[in-house]
Design a protein around this nucleic acid. Structure first.
Lengths: 141, 141
DNA sequence: ACCAAGTAGGACTACATTAGTCCGAGACGA
DNA sequence: TCGTCTCGGACTAATGTAGTCCTACTTGGT
């Protein structure tokens, strides 16, 4: 059997977690971290770091300041940032199955016995990801 | 924002569910269903159906009989088949993050604060997928 | 006023995975 | 021994992911 793996969390998103973790550390001090520093500290290329940070900024999770002495910082208190928001900002919504997406028309719609079970799993996952805040995520417990 | 979606369950696997569902219906009667019938009834090409059924057979979930009047049937009682087994037979193990796979060496191993949280989510998902049997999956409740 | 340090953001490329097809070979019943 | 059926690998097209590159824009310091 091949070593196929289905990941819920992509690599981009994993990088985003590290950035957010580092930004959380700097949050109380109020200081900004430049994309270059974040990239270097987390062993990600600068270009890619920019791309990911842009997505986070677009979702309103971080704020950017241009120019020298500029950089990024958390836009909100880390206790109010949901884990789910980070994931969705970078890689889009997570679903168990296409059938559960709003706009997808499953050919077995209505008569598919699997549907309700999938929905249960979906809501469990969503619940966990929403409940978990960035702050909790970072701190040991 | 693009309409990216991360799916836990791939299309192959979805087809496999339908096959298994149909085979469950025929199970008590003891009859076999040919790959051609399964393909047609579920609107999947014959070639692809064969491929998926081979995977299911390889995992010991269905039995095949060659020759005319041959076909597939469940290898076990549908109450003893775990949902998770079907998924893994077709698309391989499901993981939340590569970090949680045994053979992957995360560069932040040990000091990564995210690790334990991911592990919790992982085990929740696994637990649900293992607990759910094919029989429960098929029947309304 | 200008330059350097920084972000913004789209275009582009290489690569991996997925979904699906095709075809020859083996098995079995009539 | 013929037709129907599964077996199973090789192959292909399409899609998605990861990452790079380049240019434009912003702002603080001198």
């Amino acid at each position: 059997m091949k070593d196929i793996v289905v990941d819920l969390i992509r690599r981009d998103t994993d990088y985003a977690f590290r950035f957010m973790a580092q930004l959380t550390g700097a949050y109380s001090g109020g200081g900004r971290l430049s994309a270059r520093v974040l990239a270097k500290d987390n062993e990600v290329s600068y270009s890619l770091a920019c791309k990911i940070l842009q997505k986070l900024a677009g979702a309103g999770l971080v704020e950017s300041t241009m120019g020298p002495k500029g950089g990024f910082r958390l836009a909100k208190n880390p206790e109010t940032i949901e884990f789910k928001q980070i994931i969705e900002a970078v890689q889009g919504p997570v679903s168990v199955n296409k059938c559960l997406m709003g706009d997808y028309q499953c050919p077995l719609k209505g008569k598919c016995p699997a549907h309700p079970k999938m929905a249960v799993l979906q809501s469990q996952i969503n619940g966990y990801l929403k409940k978990l805040t960035l702050q909790e995520f970072i701190s040991g417990e």
